[in-house]
């Protein structure tokens, strides 16, 4: 029997890398020539944030199959943590000024923000993941709200402190050091890591647990470990997205992280296809751009948005891409009539 080499079969990352670089070059040209205004680059930034949020939520919801309604809670942790870190750095003159590009400060802050979100993801995951389905959805909703309310009452996060009641203020004065080039590459790296994750033993294990957790245990998977790992992993990237958001928007109000925001990301995951990272990328792009594109029809905006959702759910109940992944290599080989290859690209979205 001839056994194919799976590495050679699963090519070609180079094509995707070229695709990503070309997209980046186009972006740079558009920004330089002024086609992409500050307004549009802001939308692109929102799209990148949505992509990271939707793909990371897809790990928990699509691959592990557990609806989580508190994803914005982790985003909030990442946002506030990284904002406080860059503020503290600015105050104590660490990595500020000439010779120390904003990029380092930004990167350190969002990674710490992501790490803290991951720790909370784990702490929430350990008790919550004993439950499944509707019950888990409700408990994650609860945890998301707890995080929100706690932050609202923290003095150093702009709140008045518990003794003064809950009327929190915004955390202001965050340096707006997210820039679209950096954010683009962070998105690419995040999606790449998540893609590798789901294509490894870990993604396989999550899908098995989604299909049948009893037989997953009986075939040797440590179900609890994998569930908590998926939740932690997912929360980490939500924290990263939060960090980007904080340094893009410049001031944080806890109202940016409500339950309804979490639901929006769940919608993106369902819209793109549960279990398809590229689906989440496409859905994150479309659903963040659509409200802006429809701004001219102000009063019909939400109507069109809702109809788009209904149409997709009726005609494509599994979402735009189902569980399949979009593959640049496949598209190219179809164009040039070559053999079929299997791999998708990462972060290929403009």
């Amino acid at each position: 029997m001839i056994i194919p080499n799976i590495q050679r079969k699963a090519k070609n990352p180079l094509v995707n890398l070229i695709g990503i670089i070309v997209a980046f070059a186009v972006l740079v040209i558009l920004v330089r020539t002024g086609v992409v205004s500050t307004y549009i680059s802001g939308i692109l930034m929102t799209i990148c944030i949505s992509i990271i949020m939707a793909t990371s939520l897809n790990i928990a919801t699509g691959f592990l199959g557990q609806i989580a309604l508190g994803h914005c809670g982790f985003m909030a942790i990442g946002a506030y943590t990284s904002a406080l870190i860059t503020k503290a750095m600015a105050n104590s003159n660490i990595l500020v000024g000439a010779g120390a590009p904003n990029f380092f400060r930004f990167l350190i802050a969002i990674i710490i923000g992501g790490a803290l979100a991951a720790i909370f993801g784990m702490l929430v995951g350990i008790p919550a993941l004993r439950l499944k389905g509707d019950y888990l959805a409700i408990i994650t909703l609860g945890f998301g709200e707890i995080i929100r309310v706690v932050i609202q009452n923290l003095k150093f996060c702009g709140g008045n402190g518990l003794s003064q009641g809950a009327a929190g203020q915004a955390l202001v004065g965050i340096s707006r050091i997210s820039n679209i080039y950096v954010v683009y590459w962070i998105t690419v790296v995040c999606v790449f890591l998540m893609y590798c994750f789901v294509r490894s033993r870990y993604g396989r294990a999550l899908m098995a647990i989604r299909e049948d957790d009893v037989s997953s245990g009986a075939t040797g998977l440590n179900v609890t470990y994998y569930k908590v790992l998926a939740f932690t992993f997912s929360a980490f990237f939500a924290g990263i997205a939060g960090g980007i958001f904080a340094h893009y928007i410049g001031s944080l109000s806890i109202n940016n992280f409500t339950f309804m925001k979490s639901v929006e990301y769940v919608i993106m995951v369902v819209f793109g296809g549960m279990g398809s990272l590229t689906g989440s990328i496409v859905a994150g792009g479309i659903l963040s751009a659509l409200p802006e594109a429809l701004r001219r029809f102000a009063e019909y905006r939400m109507l069109v948005y809702s109809i788009a959702l209904i149409v997709v759910v009726i005609f494509k109940p599994t979402g735009l891409l189902g569980t399949r992944e979009f593959s640049l290599t496949n598209v190219l080989s179809r164009f040039f009539g070559k053999g079929k290859a299997e791999i998708k690209d990462g972060g290929q979205d403009e």
Partner: peptide, 18 residues
């Protein structure tokens, strides 16, 4: 109790996880 929506070979690969 197979992993119904997964491929035949992935069903076996899961059991190799340890």
């Amino acid at each position: 109790r197979l992993f119904k929506q997964m491929s035949v070979i992935d069903n076996v690969k899961i059991a190799c996880d340890q």
